[in-house]
């Protein structure tokens, strides 16, 4: 909009987060407790390992893990990258499939009743059992990983999006009819926006699941990826490497989660759009 309205908006708008030192303080009070606990656990762990002389093959101290991550930074990064490629591709594919089925469910209650049990089957089937099957069918490359990630992704997004598409108040439909909107226009102007907050709530759940899916697929046979690093370290009983791999995949998953959150901030541009904090 014009500058004038922008100014007016920022004036009246907003339980304002404030500027300068005020903002820093809110950031600090938001993150300080978590950071403090994190550091405390790290120190306690380090101290316990030293005090009880716990051997490295049982429980390596955080400092040892960090040293290992630095030493093996390059192969770790490479493997994480391979896994994340599959996870992101699976997340995108799963989202597309979920949105397509959400539309089908919206258009036909009968199809929803017919197909929804399959969504539940896909969701409840043990992923560890499906992964080797998909590896048999799709080979040792990226394909089975994408498939497993997609399967995990679908359900939360599908269920949430269907709810969102149906979350529109009856009066809004009456309004659209009175002003002469076609069903297509009502969909574009109303349903898409009503569904978006729900879709993103699902997407946030699915983001973590997608990475887990890719790692699980790598367990059952893959040439590269953090899952293979974990399996190999397990065979060698290399606890330090296991912790390093766990740490790296956690960081990558959190990064993906925040990419989704950033995308959500971009798409849900209006106030009060997001379902939870």
């Amino acid at each position: 909009m014009t500058e004038a309205t922008g100014e007016a908006a920022s004036e009246v708008l907003a339980p304002s987060p404030g500027k300068g030192p005020g903002r820093l303080r809110t950031l600090l009070s938001a993150y300080a407790p978590a950071i403090l606990v994190f550091l405390a656990v790290g120190f306690a762990w380090e101290a316990a390992v030293a005090f009880f002389r716990i051997p490295k093959f049982l429980l390596p101290a955080p400092s040892v893990v960090i040293q290992r991550i630095i030493a093996d930074a390059e192969p770790l990064a490479q493997n994480v990258f391979v896994t994340m490629q599959a996870a992101v591709a699976g997340l995108i594919l799963g989202t597309i499939i979920a949105l397509a089925f959400a539309l089908i469910f919206l258009m036909s209650r009968i199809l929803e009743r017919a197909l929804f049990p399959w969504a539940i089957i896909v969701q409840t089937v043990p992923i560890l059992a499906i992964a080797p099957l998909l590896t048999i069918w799709l080979g040792f490359g990226i394909a089975p990983k994408i498939a497993v990630s997609a399967i995990i992704t679908i359900f939360p997004i599908l269920v949430n999006t269907v709810r969102g598409l149906r979350s529109v108040n009856r009066q809004v439909f009456e309004l659209m009819r009175v002003i002469g909107a076609s069903p297509g226009q009502t969909f574009r102007e109303v349903r898409v926006f009503a569904a978006m907050p729900y879709t993103f709530a699902g997407l946030r759940i699915s983001a973590g699941g997608a990475v887990i899916g890719a790692i699980v697929a790598e367990f059952t046979g893959a040439n590269l990826g953090i899952g293979t690093v974990i399996v190999n370290a397990g065979y060698r009983q290399d606890a330090t490497m296991l912790f390093s791999a766990i740490f790296c995949s956690c960081v990558a998953t959190i990064a993906l989660f925040y990419v989704v959150v950033a995308l959500e901030r971009l798409c849900l541009f209006w106030p009060d759009a997001r379902l939870e904090s």
Partner: peptide
């Protein structure tokens, strides 16, 4: 309704939250 359209004001304002 097709030719001229009614104006209708609902009990709740029924505004689209994503529109200014």
């Amino acid at each position: 309704q097709r030719d001229r359209r009614f104006g209708f004001v609902f009990q709740e304002a029924t505004l689209l939250p994503w529109r200014t």
